[in-house]
Write a protein that binds this DNA or RNA. Structure first.
Length: 353
DNA sequence: TCTGGGGTCCTAGGACCC
DNA sequence: TCTGGGGTCCTAGGACCC
């Protein structure tokens, strides 16, 4: 029997901002891109519960948030700072883990099956985690506990804010019953839409779905996986020592552009940013990919593999070639991205050119 | 209302090699 | 002259998550 927990920080970016400015607590606050008096092109990253009372939520266009609440506090992203807070929290959580897997800056799974006996102990442990993270770092979190990652994740959603929710094996069916398919972790809007067309709008319907119909629509493996999810079954392990697979940066222009000069300058800046992370991670890379989002939101990727390198010049030159060889000059560009993958660590080795 | 930026994983066809 | 089957790498696209 496994016991898995998902620990998730509550409104993490704004909570970090509150740590260094307690004034924020008493008013609606939003972390995201610059609203620019309602003309900004970004979205809300996170907002506190006072802002949520006005219907503001993460992912909402920042211009819309501004229309709703122009006098809210708008804070720019300070990712380095959030990362430093995250690091302290994750160190604390690790202390309680059997196995530990960080899934994002503010979320981690732990597998405590071998450390604890039963759900009563798990609940005590979860309370201690919550108290320790709050007491030492000052951030509130929510914790979901279940027999696998899927259930732990979904339980955590129900636990928010600042709560603990336990779903034992024999409670899984009842817990899932009545949910819509897109509440399942891993099923998004597109898949939900396709499932609905097949007649499976709810988790209960999907749990009894025809294997053949699912395999036809989604392929054998994904088809079987989503049916298993609907039955509360998820074999994925909590895995430690995760290696970064790719490093990238993207940039949305203030106004859509077709200026080669503007685009090359963006490629240069993004490449330098990527190289900072490349150096920090002590890796070289093999594949370079650019992403172009045109004014109409169509997106294209163009990539090329080179001899393993960590040269910024190779990165910039290849990215510029990919742009000039592939870009559709009849359409303005909204966003450009540069990413490297095929990462090879040189940690602890002699560095070669 | 008008849509960011950081990622991961999967699929599929073609090239190439044995 | 026409023909396997397996494996890996490369490129492009798509779905999903926070």
């Amino acid at each position: 029997m496994r016991i898995i927990m998902l620990i998730d920080m509550d409104y993490f970016y704004v909570a970090c901002e509150e740590l260094r400015n307690s004034e924020i607590k008493s008013r609606p606050a939003i972390v995201g891109s610059d609203p620019k008096g309602g003309q900004g092109r970004g979205v809300v990253m996170t907002c506190n519960y006072m802002a949520r009372e006005f219907g503001i939520h993460s992912g909402m266009p920042i211009s819309m948030a501004y229309r709703i609440k122009p006098d809210a506090l708008y804070l720019p992203l300070d990712y380095d700072y959030y990362e430093s807070v995250s690091k302290k929290i994750m160190e604390r959580i690790k202390g309680f883990a059997g196995r530990f897997e960080q899934v994002s800056i503010d979320e981690a799974f732990i597998d405590v099956s071998d450390k604890l006996h039963g759900y009563a102990e798990a609940e005590e442990c979860a309370k201690r985690i919550r108290n320790e993270v709050l007491g030492t770092v000052g951030i509130k979190c929510s914790i979901g506990i279940g027999p696998n990652k899927l259930i732990a994740k979904m339980a955590c959603e129900k636990a928010k804010p600042n709560g603990i929710k336990i779903v034992k094996e024999n409670e899984v069916r009842e817990f899932l019953s009545g949910s819509k398919v897109d509440e399942l972790y891993g099923i998004g809007a597109k898949t939900a839409e396709r499932l609905k067309k097949l007649g499976y709008a709810t988790v209960d319907e999907l749990s009894k779905a025809s294997n053949m119909a699912l395999a036809d629509e989604f392929g054998v493996s994904f088809g079987a996986e989503i049916k298993a999810f609907a039955n509360g079954i998820d074999g994925r392990e909590v895995t430690e020592n995760y290696d970064v697979k790719s490093i990238g940066r993207e940039f949305t222009f203030e106004k859509d552009t077709e200026s080669g000069e503007e685009i090359r300058s963006a490629i240069g800046r993004l490449s330098s940013e990527v190289m900072k992370d490349v150096a920090k991670n002590q890796v070289s890379f093999k594949t370079i990919t650019i992403k172009l989002r045109y004014y109409d939101f169509t997106e294209h990727l163009h990539s090329r593999s080179v001899k393993v390198t960590n040269s910024v010049d190779t990165l910039i030159q290849t990215a510029e070639e990919l742009y000039s060889e592939n870009a559709d000059r009849s359409k303005k560009i909204r966003k450009i991205g540069v990413r490297v993958s095929g990462l090879i660590s040189y940690k602890g080795q002699k560095r070669i050119a």
